[in-house]
Amino acid sequence: MNSLHQQSDAELVRQAKRGSTKALDALVQRYALPLYSFIRALAGSSSLANELYQETWYRCFQALRTRYRERGHFRTWLFGIAVNVVRQSRQQSRTLPLDEDRFDTLVSQEHSEDEVVNGERKRYLYRAIARLPEPEREVVLLRLQSDLTFREIAEVLNKPLNTVLSHMHRAVKRLRSELKELA
């Protein structure tokens, strides 16, 4: 018998809906890091990201308990919830602060010269992404941070694939321009 971590999302969802907390926990473990990284990059501050991350899972559990139907992929559905949670938070607070200190900390923890250069690049890249318009930032983070395909991103954001690719193209142009100095 396959262990829970080898089973597909759909199978884990079915077991979770039948009452298996182990299956639900396996789903949480599977998506914890990509989901949290995505939310944290979108939200800005760590404390807010923690709150939105918990809220995303809470809504996921609620929907699984009541209205979730297996029409699409679980992970695109989950990231769709995360996007909505972050957007609603942004509407309520109007601005989400940019937590640049976390990348400064990241750089200070690295030791070799290459690692410092790499850390510098990450910091510039992060700041450049943080300055992108919202639709472009969502696409870039879902692709780079959460490793979703562009078709999955289109599903998450409920937009046509070509629109998603246009956002990515515009984002790449901006990022190239922003990172020119570092290069």
């Binding site: 809906k17 039948r18 639900l24 949290y36 923690n50 559990f61 983070l141």
Partner: peptide
């Protein structure tokens, strides 16, 4: 490029039913 090693906070997993 964007991986940063941030550790997600724990999530309490409730039984759905």
């Amino acid at each position: 490029d964007l991986e940063e090693g941030a550790k997600p906070p724990p999530v309490a997993v409730p039984p759905l039913r």
